[in-house]
Nucleic acid binder design. Structure first.
Lengths: 197, 197, 197, 197
DNA sequence: TATGAATGAGGGTTCATTCAT
DNA sequence: GATGAATGAACCCTCATTCAT
């Protein structure tokens, strides 16, 4: 039991080191040796916990994805009106998202670059959008979203979040410094619009 | 003159081939040989037109950036109200953006991954945002944007566009198929909001 | 055409170098770099002519096997009596076998050690023995081989040749020095026996 | 005493496991871990009984060689005639040889491949042949071997046995199935020849 | 004595780049 | 200019060996 705990910690340390190294230099420009040095272990040790360099990346990707699997969020907020839903949902995720910045920076470029990973993400996205579409459709009928097309709305709002994550990763000053103001800003923009009285 | 023209065409062919190969497989997983094959030339020939593989990427990046340098757009629309500006501006760029999808897919992942390129893009962004901030500030005073923070607004709107480009690159079905509807949708969302009326 | 000729020569040079290095140090203890140095080329060049280190070994194996594919030998001697057949056949092969000593030494240990190669050789042997069995059966009926079991005879005689090749490879002094006397000795032993007259 | 006995058993178990693994996959393709798994112990434990992987191989080799050191065989049969000697000697060894098939298959390829082991075997062979040559010389004078060259005879007969062992290891069907018939066949072939009345 | 996690040297292979033709 | 064979540095990964427990 102890050994297992210890082993889990090692694995997590390697992943943390890898996310730092990958985020800084990019997956391909990083060497297994650099990750090992960052983790304070020998090269070969990594292979006791991961099958390959790519497997380390996939583990990081999995870690990232696991966070999105929280259907509880939706259920809990099912009865709230749309604006409250968006407000609460965004606030909850927001710190989470930022705390994952490094892992995201480590993983996302390679996901974009690798056809297989790209396709895997596309498939995940398709599932997530299907769920969101159903939810929005339900809400759409019962009001609160105006006459907006819920299908496009889901793409646009998630694209906004994705884009802000990228600006954050790129180091854009304002997004970095005022990250915490964004949920409120977004909710206001989306629901009130710019031409509100 | 003829030689120069011919040379320019070769260079462009290589870039086109590179953008196809890089977009499909990612920059690092692509080999110079694959680009050469795609361009229908020998490996070594690429080095008559580019100093290195990285230089090819930089050329693609430059091509992408050059398109954004159109201050004319702003000048021409300087007197329009905010909504018209956004409407016209988005419509104009929209097809352009999509036509650059391949180059974007080829270049962007590596820009995210390479510290030097990331920093270069950050610097470019900073300049662009400075210009946009000034413009929005001017407009903000004269009305049309409500009480919204123009600095955050610039980041959020550009982030949305960036995010939509990525969904497009990832192959998200709705964004792919309904790309042309997005400018109108965005303008409506941003200016009217969901709870309009 | 010139290029092809040149290419074939390079390939042959690499194989020759590999057979020297493998024969001396064994396949696994030899490095690709050592083969390259022996051939006077760079490490990577080997991979322009062979897919892998193992592929080099397989090419050597193929070279060895090709020499046994001489059905002409049999046809030509079909009408000779058994002793003449053995006499002529052994003499013909004998120098050939010795000239292949190095390739044999390079390849055979690994064939024995690798399950896949071992099985491949077994299958080749099975075919060769089937042919030999048929031939011996034919001769057996028409006399000249006494009452000996032709099936066992084929295994024993070929085993003897194989064993002598191994003693040669091992550097056994007498076999090395008196190699050329062996065909006559073998024919005499096999046909006359020790207790003759 | 008990501890020592226990220790010897462990050592023997490891050797048995190693011979199975080496025979199946070859010495170099086998890992210390595979041997340990086969023996049902931990990797490190092997190093309590052997200095190195190579040391395990040498121990197997020694085990193989020890069996040949039976001068008693010769002494006991000193007064028998040549044919009886060969007959009894072969019969005695034959089952022994086959029971060692696995160890032989494990060890022999690497002996062929490793220059040091090859030379060691050559030296052992030289000693064995010196003894055999003396014996045959003695017999040769006193008759029973015809006029055959006893020096070549020793090499040829031992080569035949070696070759048959290899065919057995390779899995040649007839040798495998009719192994027990070979001593009689060999004696008959060697002493009577094929053209016997 | 036994374990097995950790080590790190070593090797096969890839591929950007060069250069003789 | 164009070619593509040749180069060799760099890197992922394996595995024999060690040693703290």
């Amino acid at each position: 039991m102890r050994g297992e705990e210890q082993s889990d910690r090692r694995r997590a340390e390697i992943l943390a080191a890898a996310s730092r190294v990958f985020a800084e230099r990019g997956y391909h420009r990083s060497t297994v040796r650099q990750v090992a040095r960052e983790a304070g272990i020998a090269d070969g040790t990594i292979y006791l916990y991961f099958r390959s360099k790519q497997d380390v990346l996939l583990a990081l990707l999995g870690e990232l994805g696991r966070l999105n699997d929280r259907p509880a969020d939706f259920a809990e907020l099912a009865t709230a009106d749309a604006r409250t839903f968006a407000d609460v949902y965004l606030r909850r995720r927001w710190r989470d998202i930022r705390s994952r910045r490094e892992v995201f920076a480590a993983v996302f470029p390679e996901v974009l670059a690798d056809p297989a990973l790209r396709e895997a993400l596309r498939a995940r996205l398709a599932l997530a959008y299907a769920a969101a579409d159903a939810e929005l459709e339900r809400r759409g009928r019962s009001g609160g979203l105006g006459s907006s097309d819920p299908v496009l709305l889901a793409r646009v709002t998630s694209a906004t979040v994705l884009g802000l994550m990228l600006l954050d990763v790129l180091g854009e000053g304002v997004v970095r410094e005022r990250w915490d103001e964004l949920p409120v800003f977004l909710t206001s923009l989306w629901f009130d619009g710019l031409q509100r009285r």
